[in-house]
């Protein structure tokens, strides 16, 4: 079938392991102040303010939600107008089969709006986060799925001086260990699994 390439595929990364989320955030802030780019962070639980510290833009999922909702709204109206007025006008409770029956359409149109938004966003979320069937998850180190937090850097974009500086910052902020990763999938052959 189809398989997305994961973002850590065929990359050379340096990653540090933390056991405290505030240490991780301090590291991210300090590293970015020095102009070193963070590749990504991997945490087993949501860490507040990590996204702002990493300088990640706000999600555009809300705009997609609005568009999905509008689509659902229009589809619902279309469904109601077509089935109840044009295709087979129905006499329910003596109500006229024209736009005067608009109040009775509200529940259906509302449900269509919610349905389209929910399905649209669920699929978009899976798509955007590459959570399809058969996609390898980004696992550098199995501990990231349990109780440790990882910060990863792209080692190809760094020279030796930056790497030394990076090591110093990580050590200063209480890193447990620093590892190198070279495109090898952690679950199959990870040294720290």
């Amino acid at each position: 079938m189809f398989c997305f390439s994961t973002s850590i595929n065929k990359r050379n990364l340096i990653y540090g392991v933390f056991d405290d989320d505030s240490n991780l955030i301090n590291t991210v802030e300090e590293v970015r102040e020095k102009g070193i780019e963070v590749f990504d962070c991997y945490t087993p639980f949501p860490v507040h303010h990590l996204d702002t510290a990493m300088g990640i833009n706000r999600t555009r999922l809300t705009i997609a939600a609005f568009l999905c909702g509008t689509t659902g709204f229009c589809l619902g109206l279309l469904l109601q107008f077509y089935t109840m007025i044009f295709d087979w006008p129905m006499n329910i409770g003596g109500k006229p089969s024209d736009y005067h029956m608009l109040p009775s359409m509200v529940p259906v149109v509302f449900e269509c709006t919610v349905l389209c938004t929910a399905y649209g966003l669920a699929f978009l979320f899976f798509f955007r986060n590459k959570m399809g069937h058969g996609v390898r998850p980004d696992i550098l180190d199995l501990r990231q799925t349990d109780d440790h937090l990882l910060i990863a850097f792209d080692s190809d974009t760094m020279d030796q001086a930056t790497k030394t500086e990076l090591n110093a910052i990580l050590t200063k902020n209480g890193v447990l260990s620093i590892h190198e990763y070279s495109g090898q999938y952690a679950i199959e052959g990870g040294a720290h699994a």
Partner: peptide, 12 residues
């Protein structure tokens, strides 16, 4: 508001 309106409108 609509819950009130809709029921009254429908029952007539």
């Amino acid at each position: 508001w609509l819950a009130q309106y809709l029921l009254i409108w429908y029952a007539n």
